[in-house]
């Protein structure tokens, strides 16, 4: 791993989960797993965050909240769907209030399976997200260089 890489900050939002994955996300921050040694800090502010961890599926009421948080995050950003509910709707797929997994609302980059997702699994997902973040940052840089001569051209949306 690159020692001088940026420390990514994560933001956690509970879409509509059963809490199982939420407490596992919190357990990642606590002494047994301690993701802070990888430079990862849990922040409450979407504008500070690079990685969005979403647990639980999306329902009618949480959809605008999730979309707002996603739009507030600065580019490049990575979305990690933690748990089965976030990935596919899981056991609540047939509920009347379900919109489906997180990918029904915002693009998801990494799916972390497990019900509830184990802390090791979540950490694997976050480490994958780091690599992806680095790749997205490079892509963004090359794209910016490519569009530099024509400043009037449209800003590409990711």
């Amino acid at each position: 791993m690159n020692l001088f890489r940026k420390s990514p900050w994560i933001i956690h939002y509970d879409g509509a989960s059963c809490n199982g994955c939420d407490i596992e996300v919190l357990a990642c921050l606590t002494p047994r797993y301690d993701v802070e040694r990888l430079g990862i800090i849990n922040t409450g502010n979407p504008k500070h965050a690079d990685i969005l961890l979403i647990t639980g599926y999306i329902n009618e009421q949480s959809q605008p909240v999730v979309r707002t948080i996603y739009e507030q995050m600065p580019d490049p950003k990575v979305v990690v769907a933690v748990g089965i509910c976030a990935s596919s709707g899981g056991i609540f797929r047939d509920c009347y209030n379900t919109k489906g997994g997180v990918d029904s609302t915002i693009p998801v980059d990494i799916y972390v399976p497990g019900c509830a997702a184990r802390p090791e699994s979540i950490m694997d997902g976050v480490v994958q997200a780091l690599d992806l973040l680095e790749r997205k940052r490079k892509e963004k840089k090359t794209r910016r260089r490519a569009i530099a001569p024509t400043p009037t051209s449209e800003v590409p949306t990711p």
Partner: peptide
């Protein structure tokens, strides 16, 4: 309220009573 409302009580009509334990 309602951010986590799933409506899982209604799932008893779709899952049989032994499988509903998982829910």
């Amino acid at each position: 309220f309602g951010f986590i409302h799933r409506g899982l009580e209604k799932l008893v009509e779709k899952k049989d009573f032994t499988e509903f334990t998982f829910i």
